[in-house]
Write a protein that binds this DNA or RNA. Structure first.
Lengths: 341, 341
DNA sequence: TTGCCGTTTGCAAACGTTTATGCGAAACGC
DNA sequence: GCGTTTCGCATAAACGTTTGCAAACGGCAA
């Protein structure tokens, strides 16, 4: 086991120096056709591939991208991760993904571990970096990491030297509201998750603003707080919703999972969607097409998002030349959970 | 940028040799308390962490686990990957995941790339390794990889020297059928995906066997073939189902996504589940709790699965001492998609 | 003081690459 | 035919660790 053949073995058998083999592998300089051929044959014969770790050590580039995601069970992060993994592979990079389960101590442990592996960049998606009041210990670690490794946030990021690329959450709320208003809805509720992440807050803030701006009739009971970004929370939220004195004609869920839960619970209680009430979601993950009815949801172009993140991650110029806050545009995908009133 | 501090920098500033710093880091030998303290302080001060790549090079152990999965958008693989990532982290390993999109050329390219990164083991989940007739080019690459890297299949594996750990697909079908029969069903259909993966075939084979053994009334039209493991295929399958001369009283979907599609389509066509027909799924991913009605599904203990895979991956003894085919036990999680008849 | 033993420590080689440097030979211009 | 340029290639140093070996050190018994 672990009897890896090396560039030396190839060189010896071909009767050339290791340097020549390396040159053939990297294609840096010309080598004579005769030797090239001889070496290539041996490479094929042994299925030889250079040790990427050793290479990384000399060229000080690992061609690894680290990712720290808050919850790899959440369809949103799955979409993001899958898109990044794709795009990175296309560009010749491998992806190291670690899942923090939104746990502060894991965030620190995993970032530490991730850094040891010398990725060329680390993309932090979700978690405390997006908090209104970030954890000082985490921030301190981040800024130390930033000294040696390019750091990118998949959200807005308050740290200098750490470009943030975020979904345009304000626009997403606008779009959802416009869509509903376009269908004639004026009484709209929102089942939201209130962890003080920036994105979340933005959605909530914009929701209230629009209610104001458009002078929509509104009742505080239509603004329902739930603990998590999952289906159970959606069900809980829907349960609370049904206790309202008066029902809104449409309800927004914080994300697809929450909205899926809402649909589930409403259905369970005999409330028909979209006949009795319209429901809309955010993120447009694969969840939106398996709910019943299928969920209208605010969408993002995950490939574009991934591509923006990687552009920033792999950008080699001075860090200040990178825009520090970019937004990913949003659009809406209509399915069957909203109706005209 | 990339001004990484090294063990040398620490050593110089502490007035000791690099070897001493290394010994403190690894805890291999005793070093005098005075020096230890001095060095530790500097390590804290600079947030120093040793370069894992360099370390891997000398100890010929990367503490990396490679994973090749067939489709990272499929909830089953997400569950598997998440479980492995978790368990690996607990054991001090990082995970490199690559997604082949079930594309043969990607399988080869990604396995090649993965191997370059010198993971201590590679776990191959799904894809051509599980085919009845595996692709010779892929097999040849696999057996070359096996020379230097421990290789584990997350399915049954026909290759010698590659232990396979698989869900017990035969038992899963048995369980699903027993459950339905226990509820009084005798007319049972199966919407299955017919790609000739071993697992798939096992489920189908067992299905037919049970029909025989139990002398269940059966019509060929109840065995419906669909192209993929997704919700669209489920809908397609349900559509075909409704064209049957006579409907079965229960229907199995190939996995949760297919079953979710079935539920969707039946609902759409006004067929009530479970009143008119019972539906059951496989894999018990998070999908089964967001469908309506919630889906009864055959479950696996993903943590156990991950743990078995890692035990095999990290096992350092002779390869022949490893059992070559282990099965992951299955159980059933009841929800609301089946009823007594 | 000497010798011995056990602990702590430094030196240097090794892991598998890439790449700067320089050298010999071939090719060129005259 | 002779300098001069070009080309192909080998040598060796470097990347940042770990670790075998041997030397230094300190304590203690003789």
């Amino acid at each position: 086991m672990k009897k890896n053949i090396t560039i030396y073995d190839i060189a010896k058998e071909a009767g050339v120096s290791p340097a020549t083999v390396s040159r053939i592998l990297t294609g840096a300089t010309a080598v004579s056709p005769a030797k090239r051929e001889r070496v290539m044959e041996l490479i094929e014969k042994y299925h030889f591939r250079p040790n990427a770790l050793a290479r990384a050590l000399t060229v000080t580039q690992s061609h690894l991208i680290g990712m720290l995601v808050a919850d790899s069970g959440n369809p949103y992060y799955i979409s993001v991760f899958t898109a990044i993994e794709n795009e990175a592979f296309k560009r010749g990079y491998a992806t190291l993904m670690m899942n923090t389960h939104s746990t502060p101590s894991f965030e620190i442990a995993m970032l530490t571990k991730l850094r040891e592996l010398q990725p060329d960049a680390i993309i932090v998606c979700g978690g405390r970096i997006d908090l209104e009041q970030p954890d000082p210990a985490f921030i301190s670690l981040l800024s130390s990491v930033r000294e040696s490794t390019r750091l990118i946030a998949g959200s807005r990021c308050p740290m200098p030297g750490v470009p943030g690329i975020a979904i345009d959450h304000r626009a997403s709320m606008e779009l959802a509201m416009k869509h509903l208003m376009g269908l004639g809805h004026r009484e709209i509720g929102f089942i939201y998750t209130g962890i003080p992440y920036y994105g979340t807050q933005q959605r909530l803030a914009r929701f209230r603003e629009i209610i104001q701006e458009r002078q929509l009739p509104f009742r505080e009971e239509w603004l329902i707080h739930v603990p998590a970004y999952d289906a159970a929370s959606g069900r809980l939220g829907a349960e609370k919703l049904l206790q309202c004195q008066r029902l809104p004609s449409a309800i927004l869920g914080m994300n697809d999972m929450v909205s899926a839960g809402i649909l589930r619970e409403l259905n369970h209680r005999g409330v028909k969607v979209p006949e009795d009430i319209s429901v809309i979601g955010f993120d447009d993950t694969f969840v939106s097409s398996i709910t019943s009815p299928e969920l209208t949801s605010v969408s993002y172009d995950y490939q574009l998002f991934a591509s923006m993140l990687l552009d920033a991650a792999l950008y080699t110029g001075p860090i200040d030349a990178l825009p520090s806050d970019q937004l990913v545009p949003v659009f809406i995908t209509e399915r069957n959970s909203c109706r005209r009133v």
